[in-house]
């Protein structure tokens, strides 16, 4: 599979932009989280068409299946209803913030217009065993980074438990 055809690309782009916009615009955090899940599933679809099948699967498992479930769970646990004031105060500062974000986006797009590596000839399409190659790279060239990330995850797990620890519960010692 090469990259998407024009029609499919614009459909995907429209879906992604709509969902991403909904994430930041919904006053109810649960709706935001659910829109983010949809964004991530659509992104997995785009990855799939960009010859990153394994990454697409991992995106589904890690992001949509684990990280976002955690988000939704925490929001539901707190039972946050519709927020009265979801956005920060101040009309002028708000306008400035939106303008700065738009500037960043415009600047980036303006820069990307001149990127010239986008030739279809040099795509991964012919490579059939991408997953295997990926694994070989991960465990040879990037093995140090991989180990460090494992350590980071351990530290984060311990830290998260230490931060959100409660006294008592079913596992209390006495």
């Amino acid at each position: 599979m090469m990259s998407l055809g024009p029609a499919m690309f614009y459909v995907f782009a429209a879906i992604l932009v709509f969902f991403a916009l909904s994430v930041i615009m919904s006053p109810n955090p649960v709706h935001s989280a659910l829109y983010l899940v949809l964004t991530m599933i659509s992104l997995a679809g785009v990855y799939f068409h960009l010859n990153a099948q394994f990454i697409a699967g991992v995106q589904l498992i890690v992001y949509a299946g684990a990280v976002m479930v955690l988000f939704v769970m925490v929001i539901m646990l707190f039972d946050i209803k519709q927020e009265l004031r979801a956005f920060t105060k101040g009309l002028i500062s708000g306008a400035l913030k939106v303008a700065s974000a738009a500037f960043v986006a415009g600047y980036l797009i303006g820069t990307f217009k001149d990127v010239s590596v986008g030739s279809q000839s040099a795509s991964l399409a012919g490579n059939t065993d991408i997953t295997k190659e990926l694994a070989l790279m991960l465990y040879s060239k990037y093995v140090l980074a991989f180990e460090v990330l494992g350590l980071l995850l351990l530290v984060v797990a311990v830290g998260a438990v230490a931060v959100s620890r409660v006294k008592g519960g079913t596992h209390a010692k006495h």
Binding site: V17, T39, K97, A101
Partner: peptide, 10 residues
């Protein structure tokens, strides 16, 4: 870039 700017606004 567009999605990134949305995240930034958020």
């Amino acid at each position: 870039a567009i999605i990134f700017s949305f995240g930034m606004i958020g």
